[in-house]
Design a protein around this nucleic acid. Structure first.
Lengths: 210, 210
DNA sequence: CACTGTGAATTGGTTCACAGCC
DNA sequence: GGCTGTGAACCAATTCACAGTG
């Protein structure tokens, strides 16, 4: 097959494969089958083979996939061989918790700029970084080469801030505000809303039979 | 159409419609068309009409949907006319931030029980509630009628805790741990992983042309 | 005339099943 | 014999297009 337009679902699953493969590597597993990988992730073996075939034939018939080499390929495909500088907007409870979270840096997402509108916060520091006013976004981000931002702010400010960020060169938004952002083509958004997630599960809870 | 098996995508979108409808209601809008609703959410009008038709004909031809009445219907469909008691497991940075987040209670998800394994935390209080040891899950939850839990703990503990929770009657898990939980049929999981979200966007960032 | 509700058409995604290789 | 890679078959979801209604 090899690289026609890859559906977004496939890209998302690829990130899961990435984790599973690292899990294997940490445990010293050198070879893994699509079968085994599927069991780890609740995905069918055929699905995994088809997904990977979008990018090339990484496996060996009769054997399976070499963990180390597949991992490298997947890492490159996802663009994870490099560090990504990230901006964080909004330093309320959530923003501060995200800033504390070591996972971002561990995975190569370095938070390098903080923004807020609250004059009581602007100028203070949080985790080594000075919090700047939102209106400095345009000056700071392009120079820092930031193309990813995390939005942890109230819904009524989110769209305006998103516009500014995009103006400043940001192309990927991790949005914690419970609002559907309008963005031009070429900008990607992932919605992180725990309430939507809960509310879509209660649907099933009220329908449980037995 | 009316109520065959409703695909999960439809249920998820329903939660979005719910928010958009409330947004309308707050602004005093009494009637809304599928067209207008779609613009608010980046969804096609046909999609919305088809989704809603799974549950009944709520609209009026030539007019649109009555906001108040559709809102009530959607609320009932999603099971949101009732309060849902929720357990929170793991009181690290993330767990505490979630506990502080007022949105849960506002939307009817009341956190009523806290669990952790750390002996230094067990017995202390957080937001009016005493933190209990994980091994009390089985005693506490069934009595409290808890069927929803939030997992905010390290990946290596997540599966074990999930098993316990399910044993104690929990059927919906909001999982912040970066791990694929194995759960029996009849249990729902929503994964909340900011890293997977970021990593699936970098795929596109390294492919931007221009 | 504007807008819903819905079959039919289409597009997209998943699973099957097997040829080919180790 | 075990496992990949992939076309073909299948199933699911989205969009079209229009009849029907307030």
């Amino acid at each position: 097959m090899v690289q026609r337009v890859v559906p977004d679902v496939v890209v998302r699953r690829l990130t899961q494969y990435y984790y599973a493969l690292r899990h294997c590597q940490e445990r010293g597993v050198e070879v893994v089958s699509s079968q085994r990988l599927g069991e780890m992730l609740n995905v069918t073996a055929a699905q995994i083979r088809k997904d990977l075939s979008f990018f090339g034939g990484f496996g060996k018939q009769g054997i399976g996939y070499h963990v180390g080499s597949l991992l490298e390929h997947v890492q490159r495909i996802l663009g994870l061989q490099q560090e990504w500088p990230v901006a964080l907007v909004g330093l309320g409870n959530l923003g501060r918790a995200l800033l504390q979270y070591p996972g971002f840096a561990q995975e190569g997402f370095q938070i390098v700029a903080l923004f807020d509108t609250d004059p009581r916060k602007v100028g203070t520091t949080a985790g080594q970084l000075v919090i700047r006013d939102n209106n400095e976004i345009a000056q700071v981000l392009p120079a820092a080469g930031v193309r990813i931002a995390i939005l942890a702010l109230p819904p009524d400010e989110a769209q305006e801030v998103a516009d500014r960020l995009i103006q400043a060169g940001v192309r990927a938004l991790l949005n914690y505000a419970p609002i559907t952002l309008k963005v031009p083509a070429g900008v990607w958004v992932r919605q992180m809303d725990p309430l939507l997630a809960l509310q879509s599960m209660t649907y099933y809870l009220v329908r449980v039979t037995g």
